[in-house]
């Protein structure tokens, strides 16, 4: 535990002033995209289940009507996720040229996504698809917020392209990460798992936020509500631990870091999952009475799945982290 909390074991301890500033720049943007992206994903989560419900109940016309109106929401969610992906890719680029090209390509895509989003809302309002610029659903400012998001994405896109030119001309102080050769197919596998964990973390983050307002603690079943909230919280906390502890630890001790972090989260999540099952067993009405707003899938699938899905995710991810950490430790020992 002390290892990855020691300043000297963090990557940033070896960085110069410019590199640290550049690193902070990436961190800032990743958080900036994560938070609104999480809320957009939450609304998409709602809309998707509604749409699936319409299709499954032989009313595809209603699914189409909803999709036509909610397309800017889907585009916005996709834009935030794409922004996270390409800034992360640039942060972990294998060389400066690749970093510049990622910013440039990402910027072009952001401009296109932003233009489509903004134009769609603008045309939608003009044609009467949206009755007014602020209808109030799915968010209090919808669709104006989507229009503004589109404009911001265009701006972000242009700034990304501009930044790629700066990197091309002046270089980048932040060291590049050439770990592709080390992992090969495993990188792709873990990359997919990471993407899934990122989605779970984003929805978990939004669920934590909405849970504060949605969970009906006044109706009793306090324990169930807290455990459910913590289940979502750890999904989000795990990703942050991965991103800001594991990834920021020097490669030589990452195996140990992964094992320790994985062990801590595994223990916590097993306890939480067990508590979740116990609380549902004791208060079988609790999910319906207390927390339906943050269990959007359960009703429409008629299955008690959403929290369980999170529980399984929260247990599997640390197990994979521990296994991966053990393999890394073994490799380090064999290299030594």
């Amino acid at each position: 535990m002390a290892a990855y909390l020691t300043r000297n074991d963090r990557i940033k301890s070896e960085l110069g002033k410019d590199a640290r500033r550049e690193r902070r720049f990436y961190m800032f943007f990743s958080i900036l995209a994560f938070v609104p992206g999480a809320f957009a994903l939450w609304e998409i989560n709602y809309e998707l289940w509604n749409m699936i419900g319409s299709v499954a109940s032989n009313s595809p016309d209603m699914a189409l009507t909803q999709t036509v109106r909610m397309l800017p929401l889907y585009l916005t969610g996709a834009s935030f996720i794409f922004f996270l992906i390409y800034t992360n890719g640039a942060y972990r680029a294998k060389n400066v040229k690749a970093r510049a090209s990622k910013w440039c390509a990402g910027g072009i895509v952001m401009i296109v996504l932003g233009m489509i989003t903004a134009a769609y809302v603008g045309i939608g309002v003009a044609l009467g698809e949206y009755d007014r610029l602020i209808e109030g659903y799915v968010s209090p400012l919808f669709p104006l917020d989507m229009l503004l998001a589109g404009v911001i994405f265009i701006g972000v896109g242009f700034l990304s392209i501009r930044y790629s030119k700066v990197i091309g001309e002046k270089g980048s102080a932040l060291p590049c990460v050439d770990d592709r050769g080390l992992f090969g197919w495993r990188l792709r596998t873990f990359g997919l798992l990471r993407a899934l964990c990122l989605l779970m973390a984003m929805i978990g983050f939004a669920a934590c936020f909405w849970g504060i307002f949605v969970l009906d603690f006044a109706h009793g079943c306090l324990m169930y509500g807290i455990v459910l909230w913590l289940n979502y919280f750890t999904a989000f906390a795990m990703y942050f631990a991965y991103k800001y502890i594991f990834c920021e630890t020097k490669p030589g001790i990452r195996g140990t870091t992964a094992v320790k972090l994985g062990s801590i989260f595994l223990i916590i999540n097993v306890i939480l999952f067990a508590l979740h099952l116990i609380t549902v067993q004791i208060w079988n009405e609790a999910p319906d009475v207390v927390a339906f707003g943050i269990l959007p899938a359960d009703f429409l699938t008629s299955m008690n799945i959403f929290a369980v899905f999170y529980g399984v995710n929260n247990i599997l991810a640390p197990i994979i982290a521990i296994a991966r950490g053990l393999v890394m430790e073994k490799k380090n020992r064999s290299i030594a």
Partner: peptide, 25 residues
């Protein structure tokens, strides 16, 4: 340190369970 964190997690869980109550009828 690991032991301390696990202990804290268990204590927190117990504390939460003490706070718990469903029937407020």
């Amino acid at each position: 340190m690991l032991k301390r964190i696990v202990s804290m997690a268990v204590i927190c869980a117990l504390a939460v369970s003490l706070l718990a109550g469903c029937a407020k009828k």
